[in-house]
């Protein structure tokens, strides 16, 4: 069970949240020039590291606001929580770099 620090509501248990998958994905553009392969990758292919994963979470049963979480996928340890518009922090102690 994770204890997740919502930036607005404080520490709450994981049941109140939903994980929205990989963060920092940008839509390829302009659309007319994007190849089928690139478009398929944008829709379906996600980073799947055994290490720190940068992902979006929403406080679904709370303030309903989105934020970013850097979480280790093998230990589930949360390394950082940061706002949606912020860039991903890099390098954590003892964590695998992406």
């Amino acid at each position: 069970m994770l204890l997740i620090h919502c930036p607005w509501c404080g520490p709450r248990e994981e049941l109140e949240f939903r994980c929205g998958g990989e963060s920092h994905i940008s839509r390829p553009s302009p659309s007319a020039t994007v190849s089928d392969t690139d478009w398929g990758n944008y829709l379906f292919t996600r980073k799947n590291p055994k290490g720190v994963h940068y992902e979006r979470w929403v406080h679904a049963f709370g303030c309903r606001r989105w934020f970013n979480v850097a979480r280790h996928t093998a230990t589930h340890r949360i390394e950082a929580i940061y706002a949606m518009h912020e860039a991903a922090p890099s390098a954590f102690d003892g964590a695998d770099a992406l």
Binding site: M1, E14, L15, G21, T73, A74
Partner: peptide, 13 residues
Amino acid sequence: DLYPSYAQRGNMP
């Protein structure tokens, strides 16, 4: 389980 994981143990919820 509700989020991506490589932990072969499963989560309580």
